[in-house]
Amino acid sequence: MNTISRDEVAHLARLARLAVTEDELDTFAAQLDVILASVARVGEVAADDIPPTSHAVPLTNVFRADEVRPGLTQQQALSGAPATEDGRFKVPQILGGDE
């Protein structure tokens, strides 16, 4: 199995929105390498005829009636917010992307 490079760790950190330090990059690269080498064992078991399991208990079709339930007040909704304005969550400027 592949091992993981420092650059790959930096890419993962970007994807995961973690502003890791240079030191952390080294530490994590080494540790993830060891862990991945170990967990890659899952590739040893034959696979083609085995269905994957995503849920531990085999339930299907669990639905809710389309009925309004009491939610939170605006004050409760905003109670944990680092910043608010006019009943809304205030966040730093969002660059580009989808509007």
Binding site: I4, E8, V9, L12, A13, R14, L15, A16, R17, L18, A19, V20, T21, E24, T27, F28, Q31, L32, I35, L36, V91, P92, Q93, I94, L95
Partner: peptide, 26 residues
Amino acid sequence: AEEVMAATREAGFGAEAKRRIMLGTY
């Protein structure tokens, strides 16, 4: 917002949480 998210998560999570987040992202 993107930079604040990254700075917050970097400061807010401990080493094991970060390790597992990156492992899972991978």
